[in-house]
Nucleic acid binder design. Structure first.
Lengths: 334, 334
DNA sequence: CTGTTAGCGCGTTCAA
DNA sequence: TTGAACGCGCTAACAG
């Protein structure tokens, strides 16, 4: 037999032995150290290829203390909002040679996993939480890491977020100024369960909205919807059975709900700005297809700031920073 | 000062010292070994809490060889399809005490990362690829891991997938049998770039569709769309300017495109099954809101089978297995 | 430029 | 039931 059976997991030692060099030399080759002659370098690389060797990352980080990875905790995989956020953030931090690892916090299982101090998240250099409440997840056993909050607020941690009260208020003002005085006001929203994931964005939007409405002596019909694509459709369908005579002014507290609402109204032959006004929140890509007027979540800016906060904190800043951003209206058909 | 400043990264040694035991004992406590007295166990746990100690996972796996994590490589975060797939798979494999780590392969950056043999993916016990072509990602330097393909096929690896030719054919047959003989046939599809991510699902659907159409002597207008929510809307809008007199029979090769197509037709006052038939592919949650007739991707079954393949392979199976599933029509309004 | 060696933090013998 | 000591695979001095 000319070739021996391949070692399934060759180590740096095997490489060194076969290349007739010391392990340090192999290590230097692996780490692109300058101080190694072209000739030996070539030989080492050849052996590496031949063996299909790949360095053991555990040994590596154990020895070098260099982890170079960050965590991105999201309450929802398969959601465009977080998909965009992830990809923007990944682009940024990869400039600094970090890996960004996704931790979807989507059910009880993933919650339990993440709470165990043996979890991978405890081995990363820092954690970005998106739209999540750190204290309700970890209670008092918060990981001793650099923590940065995107789209939520906690006075103890760096945070960048939009003021959801303000979003509610903005929506209210938009509707009031775009509706006849006798119109009927609806709030179609999601009732958050008090579970470990939520940071109560919907509740805050509701409150901001209702506060302005109250101040203007407007009555509001509150309708609760599921967080599903047909949630808004069904919810509004329970209240508006056929085309009302009066003008309808509707605040859907997210695009996912808003899309269903608009679909329903269209089927009832109601026309935007003639029969109804509708404003939602998020500015997801799909809201453009629907020509939905919506309040934009400034994802790009949030990620930009989160990144800057991370960098400055790596560079020694230790005072906590908070950035509150504004949601701006993207006016379209409704 | 009563309490000393906390060591930022206490090790098992620190715990051992403070608890007046050997590190082996601490290790036993951490691993729930039976052979340790209640008393010392309590004391150790107390110190662990006090220190906020969490075991170094690198040292742990380095020493024990036990990784217990799997990779899930997806071409798209923020896409419901993969979100559902991930969460189903994660539920399954967590029964066997595995972690499922997400690797979004969404741009050149993530591609480069994943190709480096130092990447985290090389440290996991197995890799699930969804809708991705392994060979075009890794060329010939494929990671020496257990590899399982979901929604794509490669003779060298365990695969579970739907036959995309069959999907195209099914769509064609549906349209032919639901349309008057003089109707106009459209194929609205996405032109895949030959990049490193694709597994040419669209191309195959196109081919299956066109093959049946040709056999039935039907001419087909092919329209290319972006993979965006308004892609189908714009694409069909370029061809159909106003409501055509003849019946239109349309195959949109995914729901994302189909949704936009239907939206456009509705705006032109065209009614399903009176003016047009439309069939898409995927059965995403949003297709229900649109009452889109679509060909269901059997996500649940695919994940189930992928899981079973993984388990049986862990139990010693070494023959490669392939499962081809069928896409079934979900008939709704169109 | 290159090889030797001492840890990194932990699991696991092996004695006690 | 416990503790000391070895080794996992690698990086980083240090010495040559």
């Amino acid at each position: 037999m000319k070739e021996k059976k391949r070692n399934p997991n060759p180590t740096i030692k095997d490489v060194a032995r076969l290349a007739n060099v010391g392990i340090a030399t192999v290590s230097r080759v692996l780490n692109n150290s300058e101080k190694v002659s072209e000739k030996t370098k070539e030989r080492v690389i050849e052996i590496i290829e031949e063996l299909g060797y790949s360095p053991n990352i555990n040994a590596r980080t154990l020895s070098s203390k260099n982890i170079n990875s960050l965590s991105f905790v999201t309450p929802d995989m398969g959601n465009e909002f977080y998909g965009i956020m992830y990809s923007l953030l990944e682009k940024k931090i990869s400039r600094n040679n970090y890996r960004l690892i996704v931790f979807p916090l989507i059910d009880q299982i993933s919650l339990e996993k993440i709470k165990q101090n043996t979890d991978l998240i405890y081995q990363t250099d820092g954690v970005f939480f998106s739209s999540l409440s750190v204290s309700s997840i970890f209670h008092n056993r918060i990981p001793p890491k650099k923590i940065i909050l995107i789209d939520s607020y906690d006075e103890r941690f760096d945070s960048v977020y939009v003021d959801n009260y303000q979003i509610g208020k903005t929506a209210a003002e938009y509707l009031i100024s775009n509706s006849p005085s006798n119109s009927t006001f609806y709030l179609v929203t999601f009732k958050e369960l008090n579970n470990e994931f939520t940071s109560f964005v919907f509740k805050k939007r509701d409150e901001g909205f209702l506060q302005v409405m109250e101040k203007n002596n407007k009555k509001v019909k509150i309708i609760y919807s599921d967080l599903m694509w047909d949630g808004g459709y069904k919810a509004i369908g329970n209240i508006i059975k056929r085309r009302p005579k009066k003008y309808s002014s509707i605040f859907a507290t997210c695009d996912m709900i808003g899309v269903g609402v608009k679909k329903y109204l269209e089927e009832k032959n109601m026309h935007p700005k003639r029969d109804y006004s509708l404003i939602a929140v998020d500015n997801l890509p799909i809201s453009r297809l629907f020509q939905l007027t919506t309040i934009r979540q400034p994802i790009i800016e949030m990620v930009e700031i989160a990144y800057e906060m991370f960098i400055s904190s790596m560079e020694g800043r230790d005072k906590v920073e908070h950035y509150q951003l504004e949601g701006k209206i993207v006016e379209r058909e409704t």
